[in-house]
Computed example of a mutant assay.
Amino acid sequence: MSHTYEVRSHTERLRNRVFSIVTDEVVMPGGEVVTRDYMVHVGAVGVVALDADGRVALVRQYRPAVRTVLWELPAGLVDVAGEPLAAAAARELAEEADLVAARWDLLAELHPSPGASNEKIRLFLAREIATVPEAERHERTHEEAELELHWIDLDEAVGMALAGEITNAAAACGVLAAARARDRGWSTLRPASAAT
């Protein structure tokens, strides 16, 4: 591609703690200037936590935008200033699944909806899993108050993704990437601290 897609103007329409909605005027091939609306997102992390029996930790969470409960990975926003992404993933694993891990690797990165958002999710593989002691557990509220943790065989989770039972993009990508990495003897993994 040789066209540069020059942005002539950038206007913020709405802002909250998670995202803003913006309108850009962009020069298209041929010179026409068009407007494009999209969401600027703080970013997210997700965790494929595998136990010693090859099961993946999946949560069931209600999502208002789709008005249903979805199968998801423990995941959350990159919304703590200066927090390394691997630390954000560990925080989310503890908060959403009451789990900690001794081994962390980078599994995958994805833009779940690039036609409408710049959101990027970094997926980590967590192994050597233990539970958070009861007295140290995070108090979940709102939709997270009813999170249900389920341990599902990784191959079964792959089947769920391919059958359309897991529709959350990060969860589907995460279980597929973990199965592929496992089948390649974990040789495709990158260090958890790898640059984006």
Rank of each mutant, 00 (worst) to 15 (best):
L50E: 06
A87Q: 10
D79V: 03
A75K: 15
L70Y: 04
L93I: 06
A86K: 13
L93Y: 09
A65R: 15
V69E: 11
G76E: 03
T68Q: 15
L73G: 11
V42L: 13
Q61S: 09
V80H: 13
R55F: 01
A86W: 13
T68M: 12
A88V: 12
L85K: 11
R60Q: 09
V45C: 01
L58A: 01
V59Y: 02
R67V: 02
A75N: 14
V45G: 04
V66H: 07
L58Q: 01
V66A: 06
V66K: 08
A52V: 12
L93N: 06
R60V: 01
E72F: 01
G82H: 12
E83Q: 12
R60K: 14
E72S: 11
L73M: 11
G76D: 05
R63S: 11
P74Q: 05
G43M: 06
G46Q: 07
L50R: 06
V40M: 10
A65Y: 15
D53E: 05
D53M: 01
P64H: 13
V66L: 07
V80L: 10
L58G: 01
L85T: 08
Q61T: 13
M39T: 13
L58T: 00
V66I: 12
D53R: 10
E92K: 13
A57H: 05
V69M: 04
R60G: 00
V48Q: 03
D79A: 08
R55L: 00
L85A: 07
L93E: 03
A81K: 12
E92H: 15
R63D: 06
T68Y: 01
V47Y: 07
H41E: 00
L93V: 04
V69T: 15
A75C: 11
V45K: 06
V47L: 03
V56K: 03
A52L: 08
V56P: 02
L70N: 14
R91A: 01
R91T: 03
D79M: 03
V40D: 07
A90I: 11
V80G: 09
W71V: 00
A57C: 10
V48K: 01
L93F: 08
T68F: 01
Y62V: 04
L70H: 12
V56H: 02
V66Y: 07
E83D: 06
A44C: 08
P84A: 00
V69S: 08
A65H: 15
D51I: 04
D53V: 00
A90G: 14
A86D: 11
V40N: 12
D53G: 07
D51T: 08
R91W: 04
Q61Y: 04
P84E: 00
A81W: 09
L77P: 15
V48D: 01
